[in-house]
Amino acid sequence: MLSVTIGAGPGTTPSGDDVIVGILAGLHVFGLLNEVSILARQIVPFLPRTTVASRHYLKAAMQGRFGQHVHDLVDTLAGDGDPDLTLQRASKWGATSGVDLLVGLVSVLAASMNTRSVESAA
């Protein structure tokens, strides 16, 4: 999956990379550090396949360092969770970057909720 995602899409930080940064941010928020390091190990071999700028963002994200806009997005999601406001904030960052990040973040959120509902049903 990573081979077709890293470096894919428009922009200096290609969309695929933004989604992955979003996923890493989501994993960090939930404290899933084991999952972070598993994912990070898989990302490393593909780093040369993207732009210098994006590689920098990915490396920082693997170490748990994110831009202020990522923190803002997490805060908005975690706050009153108004979906319109969240989407509005996300779409202000770059041409597609903010929304791509949000896709990554929300996918972790969704996966986590699925897991939990299975756990509570069991």
Partner: peptide, 30 residues
């Protein structure tokens, strides 16, 4: 900036006789 890039790509695609335009960083995935 990808906003500028998209604007130029969409302007180029509108030119007479142009069928399709791509403007991306030349990563393996792209």
């Amino acid at each position: 900036d990808s906003v500028a890039l998209m604007a130029i790509a969409s302007a180029t695609e509108k030119r007479e006789g142009v069928i399709r335009v791509g403007a991306v960083m030349a990563t393996p995935a792209n």
